[in-house]
Design a protein around this nucleic acid. Structure first.
Lengths: 334, 334
DNA sequence: CTGTTAGCGCTTTCAT
DNA sequence: ATGAAAGCGCTAACAG
């Protein structure tokens, strides 16, 4: 039924080893022999079995990637960066959604390891002791993508979430705003949630502005939660004049909520966020945001992983990609 | 170094076969023996090698999915549907972006087949003879996802693109519009491009409206191409009063272009599209669109694939999921 | 209920 | 430059 390397060998009148050599581009084959083998392969329609190869060579040329949710634009962008580079280095990726749920994450990490991936890219919520435990038993390299572990023991590529938030809020402050609200992610999420909240607080503090608890609302990163949060702010007796959103999508929700209330952005209320997804230029007014280079985070982390898998030396195993503010139209001066 | 099934067998004082049985949940094992084996597994930290299992059993419990571009929201949604169901049936997915490029598609199909996937989900551009050729040599089931082949020989799940476009344009006509422009995808793309264009023409024809070539522009599905197309329409001496866009994103571009020109949607120009992605409710005015159930397309196609892989009988191997128009705010009557 | 024994299709020394 | 042969770690008859 299926054509094996043995069939090709017989057809070409050589040994299995020789066929293996030509298939793997080993130079130690006489051109003439190589030709014979290629012809036999062609004639038989031979297709190498990567599973058998994987068992024999202990390399699968596939890497596992655990991602929170591929249908989230931000992560999809990272995934594309990952896959492009993986492809470039002839790796394939097994993709698993884990929704930042610890149990699911641990589970998929284990199946991925059972599948003998050559490396693992982890994009998740918090990195707990259990995660570390699972990582330890893996004897393949792992890199954290858009997350970091507290201990800083695992290679990772991320941006400075705290700093990005700080910069965003500072931009608002520089424009004269003093009453600045925040639409936050869940504080359990170390990167998009907690760190950005910390950045917000630090910027306030640095400017000598008071921190007011009633000015922060927790959202779930989705559009609707942005409008809900904004609705709440609008009902406040003393409204904020600017709002900082932890993500673009919630920011867009906020903008629309403001507009639906008959107010104008940025004339009445300014809005800034961090992400700078493609959506940022797909609203009116266009959204001013701190840019997170998501594609690059994916690409760089995959590149780092390839080095680790090849046991190449890496100078920096904890890379922080730079962020920058891109000014569009949603921030005005007070 | 690595713990094998043999080590576990020795540790538990049983044979490899028994260990294999307990790992695979074979009921033919005495509870007591099972317990012994589990303990040995625990003690040794044994993790089954799925590659070896795959070679021996000729099943990898992984399926390949070739997708145009995971960073495109529409496809990302499909991918999530696929992965959820895959997960439910204990399959993993190897994801490959192929950008609707024939060569890339053929290439990834072949690597996927080399990796011995148990099945293949194909989401691409046109299904050419070369594709069919590649599919034929695969001896695993294949289902087309959000595409169909002309001959209709391969299982597929899709929507009726032509009908969806027809319905969208008809809605415009029913609102009294007679001068209706279209922002189209490339005609080489059978589903999102050609079929939707055909639907547009047929709706015009059915209403006795003339087809005017200057009223259709080809876009690339992106926001910017929507604004470009709309700019062109706005410059026409006789402007359209409504525009039908092949995708949400281009439609949003069109809306903003109209607004930037100082006009109003839908007062001056109505806009409708097909897709109904989450973005549709993230614009003002909210976009009226024909809904394509993308998540479901993914989920249903994966479900179909599981049946095929298990050689279960399927009543309908060419499913067309229903579409429906969801009325929001971007269409007004003339 | 449990063990023995062939492979699965390929890579990889080690010879030659 | 090429071949022989020993696995890689597991499943799947088959026997008992």
């Amino acid at each position: 039924m299926t054509v094996t390397i043995y069939d090709v060998a017989r057809e070409a009148g050589v040994s299995m080893a020789t066929v293996s050599r030509v298939v793997n581009n080993n130079p130690n084959v006489k051109p003439q022999t190589r030709k014979k083998v290629f012809e036999a392969i062609e004639r038989l329609g031979y297709r190498p079995n990567a599973v058998a190869r994987g068992l024999a060579s202990k390399k699968t040329t596939t890497v596992g990637v655990v991602i929170p949710d591929i249908s989230n634009a931000i992560f999809a962008e990272v995934a594309r960066g990952i896959e492009d580079i993986a492809n470039m280095y002839h790796y394939n990726i097994i993709l698993c959604n884990a929704d930042k749920k610890k149990d699911k994450e641990i589970r998929v990490i284990n199946t991925l390891l059972e599948k003998q991936v050559d490396g693992l890219l982890f994009m998740g919520g918090a990195v707990t002791e259990e995660h570390l435990q699972a990582f330890r038993t893996a004897n393949v390299p792992i890199v954290l993508c858009a997350t970091t572990d507290e201990q800083g023991t695992i290679p990772s590529v991320d941006i400075d979430h705290e700093g990005a938030a700080f910069d965003a809020v500072q931009a608002l402050i520089r424009s004269g705003h003093t009453r600045i609200a925040m639409i936050c992610g869940t504080l359990q999420d170390p990167a998009n949630g907690y760190a950005r909240f910390q950045g917000y607080k630090r910027a306030l503090e640095a400017a000598g502005l008071p921190y007011d608890e009633s000015l922060v609302r927790i959202g779930n990163y989705r559009y609707e939660s942005g409008v809900d949060a904004m609705k709440y702010f609008l009902d406040l007796s003393e409204r904020p004049t600017a709002v900082f959103s932890a993500t673009d999508e919630m920011a867009i929700g906020a903008i629309h909520c403001i507009q639906d209330a008959g107010l104008k952005v940025p004339d009445n209320i300014s809005v800034i966020s961090v992400d700078n997804s493609r959506m940022a230029s797909m609203v009116r007014p266009q959204l001013t945001a701190v840019a997170q280079p998501m594609y690059d985070i994916g690409a760089v982390s995959m590149r780092l992983l390839t080095k680790l898998m090849k046991k190449e030396a890496v100078d920096n195993a904890r890379v922080i990609l730079p962020h920058e503010i891109v000014n569009r139209q949603s921030v005005g001066s007070k």
